[in-house]
C-alpha cells in the first residue's frame, strides 16, 4: 500500500477522474437509444453512467462483456 500522503493524493486524483468521466457519460449519452433498450440493459447503462463500474453494470445487464461494451459504445457512454 502506498504511504498515507501518496495514497490520499491518488484517491483525490481518482475522485477527480471519476467525476469527469461521470459528467462525460451524462453529457454524451444517447438517451433516444438508451430508452429503446430492454429494461435490464437500460438499468445497467444507468448504473454504468453513474458509477463507471464495468463489471457491476455488466452483471446487471446479464450480458457477455464484449456485447455489453458494444452497447455502451452505441449509447456513447464507454469511458475509462
Amino acid at each position: 500500500m502506498p504511504e498515507n500522503s501518496e495514497s490520499s493524493d491518488l484517491i483525490e486524483e481518482w475522485e477527480l477522474i471519476d467525476r469527469e468521466l461521470r459528467e462525460l457519460r451524462k453529457r454524451r449519452a444517447d438517451w433516444d437509444f438508451i430508452r429503446k433498450l430492454p429494461l435490464e440493459l437500460r438499468e445497467a447503462i444507468e448504473v454504468y453512467i453513474e458509477r463507471g463500474d464495468l463489471r457491476e453494470a455488466q452483471h446487471i445487464a446479464d450480458a457477455p462483456l464484449d456485447e455489453f461494451i458494444e452497447v455502451l459504445r452505441r449509447a456513447k457512454v464507454w469511458t475509462g
Binding site: W78, T79, G80
Partner: peptide
C-alpha cells in the same frame, strides 16, 4: 476509432 473516451485530467497526468 474505439468510441472510448478518456478523462481529460488523466490524459494530462
Amino acid at each position: 476509432d474505439s468510441n472510448h473516451s478518456f478523462s481529460p485530467s488523466e490524459v494530462r497526468a
